[in-house]
Amino acid sequence: MKVAIIAANGGMFDAYKVLNIATAAAASDAEVGVFFTFEGLNLIHKEAHKQLPMPAGTEHYQEGFKKANVPPVEELLGMAQEMDVKMIACQMTMDVMSLEKEHFVEGIDVGGAASFLNFAKDANVTLTF
């Protein structure tokens, strides 16, 4: 199985949507690639991914996350890296936001739309978050 994901949003909920599917797929022996673009870049930004905002008015879910023992975004991201999830940061967005490769966690690739399309062209599952 091959799974291609576009992560285009940068909130905490978005991080879980992307990383839960990505890690579950990798654990099921799938080849997984995620293309991080626009606010989605927050999810792999060295500092930003550790303190992603909750959507306005949902702060009370904080407690629910604790109660359900949901792993921190940091841990899920580490898990995804460990299981060889391919992560591509969008060059164009990086240019717009004046970001460099070293602003992101280790092991990512930088590429454009064509890089993602090349990965996704024969994917079995394609998702956008």
């Binding site: 839960n20 579950a24 654990a27 099921s28 898990m79 299981m83």
Partner: peptide
């Protein structure tokens, strides 16, 4: 025990 999705299958896989 105590782990939320997707950790049980991630651990199982390992």
């Amino acid at each position: 025990k105590g782990l939320a999705c997707p950790m049980p299958i991630v651990k199982t896989k390992k």
